[in-house]
Design a protein around this nucleic acid. Structure first.
Lengths: 118, 118
DNA sequence: TCTACATTTCGAGAAGTATAGAATCATATA
DNA sequence: TATATGATTCTATACTTCTCGAAATGTAGA
């Protein structure tokens, strides 16, 4: 086997997503997109907001997209990027999976601070 | 100013923690420690369980510790490592901070899948 | 078809991270 | 004090990621 296709192993996917977020520019961009909501933002605007050349930003957006954290859609000449909420949900769920086996205190206060425990 | 002391900036701390977890061995170790609970595990046992030489594991444990994700305590010759639940809580809270401003659906199902919505 | 514009891909040097053997440090016991 | 053991730090090498200018690609309008 040993092919080059995408891996579906949850741990590998988590490592990839964590690595994608483990960068100052990319973490800022991801949070910017989360805040921007479903319409997302245009590639050029993202590069400008982050004060980074377009080619550099394109590289970072590609990493976030391959990690399943953002999605892109072309609209004529512009490319819209938006947060992939499902990908983020998967990552958070994986990180919290075993959180309460040993010690419930860990998660106990976690939810209290969030705006959205709906 | 421009000193070399630890940074307290939440974004930098998040990048450091994400980078610490963005590695197959380290992510496994962290999850192992979360499961192990408050007693934690001994350095040598961790290296053995992960099938990695002690010096390499020591390096990885140092990265996790500096990132605020694990704590260590010496007990005679042995060093116990355990998960730093508060550090993990901080990271998760930071990642979710703005999650519902745009789109509540993102978090909506997130909590349903957890064992510990206490 | 020619030009303009938004974006991505390519390429190469700089910077950072991973790995693990050897040396060192810390603790315990005879 | 000498020896054994658990763990870390040192050091060097291999590997990966970052950055951004230049070139290429895709799309629209004159």
């Amino acid at each position: 086997m040993e092919s080059t296709v995408k891996e579906f192993n949850p741990q590998d996917s988590a490592v990839e997503a964590l690595g994608a977020l483990a960068h100052d520019t990319r973490l800022s961009v991801f949070r910017m997109l989360v805040k921007a909501g479903p319409d997302g933002l245009i590639a050029g605007a993202i590069a400008q907001a982050a004060n980074v050349p377009p080619s550099t930003m394109s590289h970072h957006l590609g990493i976030l997209e391959r990690a399943g954290l953002v999605e892109s859609e072309r609209e004529s000449r512009l490319i819209h990027y938006r947060a992939d909420y499902e990908g983020m949900r998967r990552l958070l769920a994986f990180l919290m999976e075993d959180c309460c086996q040993g010690v419930p205190e860990m998660c106990a206060d976690l939810f209290g601070e969030l705006d959205c425990k709906a």
